[in-house]
Design a protein around this nucleic acid. Structure first.
Lengths: 114, 114
DNA sequence: CGCATAACTTACATTTATGTTAGTACTATA
DNA sequence: TATAGTACTAACATAAATGTAAGTTATGCG
C-alpha cells in the first residue's frame, strides 16, 4: 500500500511552515520565475512579449510558471476580449512587495557569479 | 542517440549566466539549504548538531546538501582528527556575504506567509 | 474558403531532486 | 571481546520538475 502523502511533500510543508526563507524561495524558485518577475518589475507585459524575451522556454513550461505565480498571488492575469486574444500579466501588490527581495538576490548574484 | 547535454541543464546554465537572481537562487535553493545556512549564521556547527536540529532530513540528503554548499564555496568543512570523529561546518566569507540576502528572504517570508 | 494570429491545452517523455535502508571505519571504553 | 559513538557511503526507489511535439479556439482578412 502506498503512502497517502509523500515524505517529500511533508518535508516541504514542514520547512515552509518553520522557515520564512524557505517559504520565499519556494514562491520564486522555479526555473523561469526569476526571469518572469524581472520582466514584470518593469510593468504589465503580454504573454507574447514574455515569450519573445525568453525564447528558450517552451510554451507549456512558461504557462506553468505563470500559473504557479498567479495561484501564489504574486502576479495577476488580465484578459482583453479581443481577437486575436491579448493577455497581460502584472505584479500584484504582493508581487510588488517582493521588489527589494528580488533586487538583493539579483545584486548578490551579479556581484558574485564567476 | 542521446543528446550529450539535456536541454534542462542547458537552460539552467543559460539562465544562471544571464540572471543574477537565478544564480543566487540556485546556490541557496535546495530543500534543506535554507535551514542549514540559517543555523550556520550563528556560528560553526558540528554535523551531529545539524542532524539534531533537523530530525526530518535523512543523512544522505543532509550530506548532499552540505557537499553542494561546500562545492559552491558557501560553506567549508573542518575535520578534527579525534576519535570519535568531529566535523564542523562553517560559512566561508562568501557565505557570510549572503547574510543580508538570507535575512531579506527570511523577513519577507515571515511577514507574508499565511 | 483558407490562412494567419495569440494564447493557450494535451499527451507523452526525460531529467533532476529527494528519500529509504543498510552498511562502513575508526578506536576508546566497559 | 563486545559495544558505542561519529560521520559518513552505497545501492536502491520514488516524486517532482522540466521539456517536446502537436493540436485547439476564435475570428478577421484576402
Amino acid at each position: 500500500m502506498r503512502k497517502s502523502s509523500s515524505t517529500n511533500l511533508e518535508n516541504e510543508l514542514l520547512i515552509n511552515g518553520n522557515c520564512g526563507m524557505a517559504y520565499t524561495l519556494d514562491l520564486i524558485g522555479g526555473r523561469w520565475k526569476p526571469s518572469i518577475l524581472y520582466k514584470l518589475l518593469k510593468g504589465s507585459t503580454r504573454y507574447s512579449q514574455l515569450r519573445k524575451t525568453m525564447p528558450a522556454v517552451s510554451e507549456r513550461i512558461l504557462i506553468l510558471q505563470l500559473r504557479e505565480l498567479e495561484s501564489d498571488g504574486v502576479i495577476s492575469r488580465t484578459v482583453f476580449p479581443e481577437v486575436p486574444p491579448r493577455v497581460e500579466y502584472q505584479l500584484t501588490d504582493l508581487g510588488k512587495s517582493l521588489e527589494p527581495v528580488l533586487r538583493v538576490l539579483s545584486d548578490w548574484g551579479d556581484a558574485n557569479r564567476v
